[in-house]
Amino acid sequence: MGKVLVVTSGKGGVGKTTSSAALGAALAQGGAKVVVVDFDVGLRNLDLVMGAERRVVYDLVNVIKGEAKLTQALIRDKRLENLYLLPASQTRDKDNLTEEGVETVITALKKAFDWVICDSPAGIERGATLAMRHADVAIVVTNPEVSSVRDSDRIIGLLDSKTLKAEAGAEMEKHLLLTRYDPARADRGDMLKVDDVLEILSIPLLGIIPESMDVLRASNLGAPVTLADGQSAPAKAYFDAARRLNGETVSVSVPGEKRGFFGKLFGRKAA
């Protein structure tokens, strides 16, 4: 049985889709069979970020409504044979997502894949709550910025109350992925530091993704950043995060920066 991972944030534009694609590709490169599911019905974008936009025939809503089989809707990545995408519908709205339908799809995917990554839409409504509903593990994507941190706090509350795992009385495993981090600005005191965000949200750190041109470049090209340029700073950070998801202990650093300058960050333990 595979693990269901939700990538969520509350706030939009913080990097959920970028992170879902990058982590999916990183886990797949490690040998796992991975499917990334776009839950943003009506505003799909994962297909574009993964470079599969011209190959979408059927989508999640078609599968839920019984108009297509799951195997027909899954798109295999052209670069990695064990990476798949299940796109969201672009024309219908999120009311087409039913609780039973999502459950059926997730249950089937868990049987066939090692990782089922649910890319959540922004907000706290139906699409977002259904994306997190069946999760075993959650990644909360946060920017070092007040509105993002506040929304993440809200999402953490929902993860602890509205998921099947929480309702069964179990503890939801949550990880913080801090994205668009600019160490120079944090050092000048003009950006919340890693420690500030960790102290406020008090969930373990999965990784720090530095602000980088490489992320935009990868999405321009239609490749997850971990496939577009595996040696770039954000790609390395995503690879480390993927290893931590697999239970490895990897020390947290801000990639591409000199050690001495960020000495404080190196002693930190990632969960």
Binding site: G157, G189, D196
Partner: peptide, 20 residues
């Protein structure tokens, strides 16, 4: 100019303590 991050941190701590 004075650093703005400490203000962000303080405001968030007060706000989230209430919201929680």
């Amino acid at each position: 100019r004075t650093p703005s991050a400490p203000a962000a941190r303080e405001r968030l701590q007060v706000l989230l303590a209430h919201e929680r």
